[in-house]
Write a protein that binds this DNA or RNA. Structure first.
Length: 228
DNA sequence: AAAATTTGACCTGT
DNA sequence: ACAGGTCAAATTTT
């Protein structure tokens, strides 16, 4: 909808431009400093602000690859870019993120704490649903696998504690990030749009929360693929 | 209205 | 010719 300012569809062809200048620009941009790959459940919340500039289906991949560059690419000429592709349809889905070039901008970084908190919530969210399913199945198949009622209650209670503690991070940061359109996440994006919980800092003294925080750093398996 | 995303066209390397 | 990466007009969201 929107605009409707005349121009019908079909004519958004880019005018042919001087090939040589185009090539020069690309040549400049290809001065690649470094790349690294990272596998994460939270590809869109890594502490930086990104602007999406393209999406492409990659041969052999089930999911599209999305291309992002630093929000301050224009303002400060920050060369950092990344592309993100979903690698599976698990819950939560795992993503592969390729970072290219380092940030030269300042003021872009949101903080690891905020970014990882969102990350944590995604996983806690999925964990709770898994636990609920498991408990449900145990309940229904009578004999169960040896979990007594107190244990089940403890699991649910712990997960709820974790999630409540992590709700904090969704208050604002998520909106600065790009919208996700990968099918597996679309169904679960609603939590980002509902900053319902008041900001309360995570308490380092809470052992339950810290147990979760520890192994959930943003870089799960960082593979440095290339340098220079 | 401004900012961000979508998406087909375009460019380059292989 | 094909695949991957980028551009930019159109469209959507804030």
């Amino acid at each position: 909808m929107a605009g409707s300012s005349g121009s019908s569809n079909g004519d958004h062809k880019r005018p042919l431009q001087d090939c040589s200048s185009y090539a020069q620009e690309h040549a400049k941009k290809r001065v690649r400093i470094s790349t690294r790959a990272e596998h994460t459940y939270a590809p869109y919340h890594d502490g930086y602000q990104w602007r999406k500039y393209g999406q492409k289906m990659i041969r052999g991949n089930t999911y599209p690859r999305c291309y992002y560059r630093c929000t301050f690419h224009q303002d400060h000429g920050c060369p950092a870019t990344k592309h993100v592709e979903q690698t599976n349809s698990q819950d939560p889905p795992l993503f592969r993120v390729i970072y290219t070039n380092e940030h030269t901008c300042s003021g872009n970084y949101v903080s690891d704490y905020m970014a990882s908190s969102i990350h944590i919530q995604q996983i806690a969210d999925a964990s709770l649903r898994k636990a609920e399913m498991e408990i449900s199945s145990l309940t229904h198949c009578g004999a169960g696998h040896g979990l007594i009622k107190e244990e089940k209650d403890a699991i649910v209670s712990s997960l709820l504690t974790v999630i409540n503690g992590c709700d904090v991070a969704t208050s604002d940061v998520g909106h600065a990030a790009v919208q996700e359109n990968t099918p597996a996440l679309m169904a679960r994006n609603s939590y980002e749009a509902t900053p319902s919980v008041s900001p309360v800092p995570l308490e380092a003294s809470d052992e339950l929360k810290m147990d979760f925080v520890e192994p959930l750093d943003l870089g799960w398996f960082i593979e440095y693929t290339q340098t220079g």
